[in-house]
């Protein structure tokens, strides 16, 4: 379970001013749930996710993963989390197999268990045909599947997925979304950050909207519909970020 409590990240600018990339963000992600985090570019989604996974130290607030503070036990928390970063950073000169084997060592997985797990993930994500090609030669979808396999390698109970379907074709998109749903059903807590509103609509029961570093709305889709009196998530979203006025005026 993920609990974000008043997460704030302030970056100092060289000129002395300060920029709050995240400002008092609080939400919970329960076991077996896919929680959607949405917001425009630069809203503070990635900063929030980095704080959740212990890569950035919050200026204020705290993150509890299964009740333990990320700041105090970063390495313990990193074992609990599978974090898929927004830009699929893969070592282009290694093959997916080598990459997974490397990360298995970094996660202290015993050799036999690692081999079993890799075989399992290769099967689930349909990676067999490109397993021994260099990552640099893979398509975007293949890279993304490799990245997801990397994030799931140690079978972490918590998944943080930053734009997992960005730039994917319909087929890869479907493989990955159904995979995420299966993972949630098997009892993982999943945080899904994305631009794709329809994905949130179909995948998530609850969601949070981030704008200018603040969580401006949070709850189930039905609640948001009631609050705003709008039905489609895109309309709700535009309404909440204050961009709907000109649209409505027309």
């Amino acid at each position: 379970m993920i609990e974000a409590d008043g997460l704030t990240k302030i970056y100092p600018n060289p000129d002395g001013s300060e920029k709050a990339a995240a400002n008092g963000v609080s939400f919970r992600v329960e076991i077996g749930e896919v929680y959607g985090l949405l917001g425009p570019n630069g809203a503070g989604k990635t900063t929030t996710l980095r704080m959740l996974s212990g890569l950035l130290r919050p200026t204020a607030g705290r993150v509890l993963i299964d009740g333990r503070d990320v700041t105090h036990e970063p390495e313990f928390i990193k074992r609990k989390i599978g974090y898929l970063t927004a830009n699929t950073g893969l070592y282009s000169r290694l093959t997916p197999r080598e990459l997974l084997e490397y990360f298995a060592v970094l996660y202290d997985m015993p050799r036999a268990a690692a081999a079993r797990r890799i075989a399992e993930l290769v099967e689930w994500l349909g990676m067999r045909e490109f397993l021994n090609l260099r990552c640099g030669a893979l398509s975007t979808g293949q890279k993304q599947r490799t990245s997801i396999a990397r994030a799931l390698l140690a079978d972490p109970p918590i998944l943080i997925l930053d734009e997992p379907t960005l730039g994917l074709d319909v087929l890869s998109n479907r493989i990955i979304l159904s995979f995420i749903r299966d993972q949630a059903n098997s009892g993982k807590a999943i945080l899904l950050s994305t631009h794709a509103l329809d994905e949130i609509e179909t995948m998530c029961r609850r969601m949070g909207l981030i704008h200018n570093g603040r969580l401006i709305a949070e709850g189930e889709l039905e609640e948001l519909r009631r609050q705003t009196g709008l039905t489609r998530l895109s309309e709700i979203f535009l309404h909440l970020v204050g961009a709907d006025e000109p649209v409505l005026a027309n």
Binding site: L55, E75, L106
Partner: peptide, 17 residues
């Protein structure tokens, strides 16, 4: 190079000092 290719972030996600 690692940072430019985005692999650095992936690497520091791993539980390694």
């Amino acid at each position: 190079g690692e940072r430019e290719r985005g692999t650095l972030e992936t690497l520091v996600v791993a539980p390694v000092p």
